[in-house]
Design a protein around this nucleic acid. Structure first.
Lengths: 197, 197
DNA sequence: TCCTTTAATGAGCAGACAGTCCATTACTGA
DNA sequence: TCAGTAATGGACTGTCTGCTCATTAAAGGA
């Protein structure tokens, strides 16, 4: 009874539910979706749903290990690649790229009626990235935890804010451009960003 | 029939409901509060509630004209005061101060089970402030609206992120200190912030 | 192929909550 | 005093969640 060998029926049901949720999210956002909607779309019984997931959020979140894994892989590839720059915020470029590649997935979640849960998860994920990298780059301030954390929260807030804006307004920037803007603002500050060509 | 002269009963009811909501928010956050809770606390009939407000959000938001007005006043006072510096982000100091002064009100709204609606409102408010000031300070970039907006969203995200962190973690910084940190990060960037004493 | 195990099913049920309605009561302000 | 208007409570509909259980169907090992 290995981990990978699950009952075919279980796999089928979970896949159906996941697909149903994703398609519904793309059509009408996340919040207004009801469990019944998912059931109808997946053509699955009510009791079946609750046999697998606690609630709507649980179903949505269940897919997020995959996302984490994907991001980790992409990050690793980028680091081992040829032109890998050891930059302050380099991992965030990967995140921008990931979001761009799965825009159809992230966009409805970032919108008004989107999923607060998911944004929170991404936020924490990014916070870990940023914290780790700031600590590595500025070991001297590792003592003053609070100051470091202030910087982390600043950077994460800015990142998420810019990201949501990007998704929500069909801004014609590529992931690379977004990253470039973000990097300049973060490292050099607003004045430099707005006055330098 | 002036604007100010409303029926005494109307004023009474609205006041009761508003007070009830505020006290409940401080006790258990916003989201889990039900209309029935508010009714019980205010000792007001169900139909009465719906005669005045569309829903819970409507009641909460109804108090926000007051907040806007208060902020505007505080902003004006600060500008006309003696040591008024014409700084890039000076209005945001006022916001920090306001939040600090009404911490008991803002804190539960910023928390996990807080009010998304309200954060959104504050976000838009701050965005207007920042946009206006960036436009004034850097008239040259007013042409490139998108670039300006990227900076605005960056700054606003950072501000809200830092603010929520401040409220949510009992950080022992005053509004002035928070503002100082924020200002340095925004204008000079992370590197300067973390390496300068 | 048989047989035991395990999942899926669907219908139904209690409980919570939102929002509406209406006939009755009571207060307000002219 | 009195006409107008707000408050009241209680009932009612409708939506949704989370759970139960007896029944059916599929799975996969022997």
């Amino acid at each position: 009874m290995g981990i990978a060998r699950t009952d075919r029926r279980v796999r089928r049901t979970r896949e159906l539910l996941r697909r149903a949720l994703l398609s519904l999210v793309q059509e009408q956002g996340y919040e207004r979706i009801t469990v019944q909607d998912i059931l109808d779309r997946a053509d699955v019984g009510r009791s079946t749903f609750y046999a697998h997931y606690r609630d709507k959020d649980d179903l949505l979140l269940s897919g997020f290990e995959d996302v984490r894994a994907a991001l980790a892989t992409e990050r690793e590839e980028a680091e081992h690649s040829a032109g890998a720059k050891r930059e302050l915020l380099q991992p965030l470029l990967i995140v921008f790229r990931h979001v761009e590649a799965h825009r159809h997935f992230w966009e409805p979640l970032a919108r008004k009626g989107g999923a607060e849960v998911v944004v929170r998860i991404l936020r924490d994920y990014v916070a870990d990235l940023v914290r780790e990298h700031l600590r590595a780059q500025f070991p001297a301030v590792a003592k003053n935890q609070v100051q470091l954390e202030a910087a982390v929260q600043f950077v994460v807030g800015a990142f998420i804010g810019q990201g949501i804006w990007w998704l929500d307004n069909e801004i014609p920037y590529s992931a690379e451009e977004m990253y470039s803007i973000f990097r300049r603002l973060t490292t050099r500050g607003v004045r430099s960003f707005l006055t330098t060509t």
